[in-house]
């Protein structure tokens, strides 16, 4: 079973529907036990980092998310990727989960580049497990971006900046874009996530 972490940070329906389109049942849950019991965990999110962190804390989910991000096949999406880093410039500065080293920064104001970045952007990828490929196009919606770090496995460019489109550390994969809204390309990525052997299944 896949657990989709519900911490009142945006639209989980389309994530669940995308997994259902792949005949893979997914449970939307804010129960730590259910998250720990799941084979794989999806950590979505849209909206603001500060309120998302407050929700995680008030719902008692900070520790379990940190834990499963290290121990299970884990997919962070959009704000669910950003929150894994250490710090965001958003809302005057927010400390994040710190699962990954690095910070989250606002796009600079560049004439002709509207913020938020909304739409399909092309990535350059170097993912050892092949979840994403160079020239893949995915749907992005964001005003802030994660800087490129040693964990970056895909980059995209906007407003004169190269940013982390996807990051990986072991079984943790997280993307700035929305695979659940990126047509067949996105479904292929979700299929890769579902098909990846979980740590329990490994020798």
């Amino acid at each position: 079973m896949i657990a989709i972490v519900d911490y009142k940070a945006g639209n989980l329906t389309s994530v669940k529907l995308a997994f259902e389109a792949l005949d893979c049942p997914a449970l939307i849950t804010s129960s730590s036990d259910a998250i720990r019991a799941a084979e794989r965990v999806v950590f979505p999110g849209v909206g603001a980092a500060k309120s998302a962190m407050e929700n995680l804390r008030s719902m008692g989910l900070t520790e379990v998310v940190r834990e499963v991000a290290e121990t299970k096949p884990f997919l962070g999406i959009c704000l669910g990727m950003q929150i894994l880093f250490e710090h965001s410039e958003e809302d005057g500065g927010v400390d994040l989960l710190g699962v990954l080293r690095g910070k989250v920064i606002r796009f600079p104001d560049v004439p002709g580049c509207k913020v938020p970045e909304i739409g399909w952007n092309e990535i350059a990828a170097n993912d050892p497990r092949g979840f994403v490929r160079t020239h893949d196009e995915y749907y992005f919606v964001h005003s802030y971006y994660a800087e490129v770090t040693p964990c970056t496995v895909a980059t995209a460019g906007y407003a004169g900046v190269d940013f982390s489109a996807a990051v990986r550390r072991g079984d943790l994969f997280a993307c700035q874009f929305h695979p659940e809204k990126s047509g067949k390309t996105g479904l292929r990525l979700l299929r890769s996530f579902i098909n990846e052997p979980s740590s329990e299944g490994r020798p």
Partner: peptide
Amino acid sequence: VARAIRIP
């Protein structure tokens, strides 16, 4: 519609 399509 949400069930049927995978684009925004």
